[in-house]
């Protein structure tokens, strides 16, 4: 029988082994009480049975604000940044699905160099979770996009390695793993979370919720800041006093008035236009991901929205399925 069982009492030892692969980060709670992915110096800080962090792990791949370029004497240069090796521990399947989606966007044609460099240095270790009222994922045990996965069982975890790096982790932690007669849960290695892709025509449905959402949305940006797959960004350039300068990119939000603006016109002038755009991007997908939903069902948007907007109500009322 394969040695794949990690007793709960051996978790701390396992974490020490993970540190061989980079700085250990995982779900912790801040002084103010916010659940966040952060460096784990003491295993006691780690929350293994957390529900969701406020900001998803995308912050490790796309920082909120990032320098793209600097310039001096009219010549632009890339930042000479070497990202650190990080092991991100205890990621839920929805967040892993979120990273898988971002990978498709940023590692495709014209690979994004900053994203790719950080992604290459990131080791992902998933963990199974218990959905709460905000979750709407369809397959909570799915965990394809990680290096290794821990499926929670009664007295510990079933370890599975999914990549070469996962195998290295298995090798490094070999003395901690024991044989187990508990078989791997069947769903554990299937991918697929979240909501089914939606019909783009629904953006013009006569559902009165559209107008209600447009009236109540405060455009605070929380839904996309906290979404594991929202990646729209703004690019701005700031000169410096010494004659040089920097070009940065920063998370943007399709609900801001500036999002569809050009000099002298706005192609999405009202909040209703922008909500439709959000629906279309989120649930129907843009080139080249048309027909693919980017919603992974983590429930963050619903949890952080000050006015309780849940875009899924638009298609549930229209007859689409809602799995919760």
């Amino acid at each position: 029988m394969e040695k794949s069982f990690l007793e709960a009492t051996r978790l701390n030892g396992f974490l020490e082994k993970l540190r061989l692969f980079g700085a250990l980060h995982g779900p912790t709670v801040t002084d103010a009480g916010v659940t966040t992915f952060a460096p784990v110096t003491d295993p006691a800080q780690l929350l293994t049975d957390y529900r969701r962090t406020q900001i998803p792990p995308k912050k490790y791949l796309l920082p909120f604000r990032e320098q793209l370029l600097s310039y001096r004497d009219g010549r632009y240069a890339e930042p000479a940044e070497a990202p650190p090796a990080i092991v991100l521990f205890a990621l839920h399947p929805c967040d892993l699905a979120g990273i898988a989606y971002l990978d498709r966007v940023f590692l495709g044609d014209n690979t994004d160099p900053g994203y790719a460099a950080r992604r290459a240095r990131l080791t992902l270790v998933g963990i199974s979770c218990e959905p709460d009222d905000f979750c709407f994922c369809s397959a909570p045990d799915a965990a394809a996009n990680c290096d290794a996965f821990l499926a929670t069982t009664k007295n510990g975890y079933l370890f599975s390695a999914l990549t070469a790096r996962g195998e290295e982790i298995a090798a490094a932690a070999a003395d901690l793993l024991s044989a187990s007669d508990v078989s791997q849960p069947a769903a554990a290695l299937q991918s697929g979370t979240g909501v089914a892709p939606q019909d783009p025509e629904l953006r013009f449905s006569d559902n009165p919720l559209w107008q209600k959402f447009a009236d109540t949305c405060v455009s605070c940006g929380a839904c996309s800041v906290c979404c594991p797959t929202c990646y729209c960004f703004d690019v701005r350039e700031y000169p410096a006093l010494d004659g040089g300068g920097v070009r940065i990119r920063e998370w943007d939000n399709c609900l801001f008035a500036t999002h569809g603006e050009v000099a002298g016109a706005n192609f999405r002038p009202t909040r209703l236009d922008r909500l439709r755009y959000r629906f279309l991007h989120k649930y129907c997908g843009f080139t080249p991901l048309q027909g693919i939903t980017s919603c992974v069902g983590c429930g963050r948007c619903k949890a952080v929205c000050p006015v309780g907007i849940d875009l899924r109500e638009l298609f549930c009322a229209a007859g689409g399925e809602m799995s919760s």
Partner: peptide
């Protein structure tokens, strides 16, 4: 000095607040 004005930012405090992982 560069002969221009800074780029315009127009998002509410919440955007940066959430991104900093503050308690709402």
């Amino acid at each position: 000095l560069a002969g221009t004005l800074p780029p315009v930012r127009s998002y509410p405090v919440c955007t940066e607040c959430r991104s900093r992982e503050n308690l709402c």
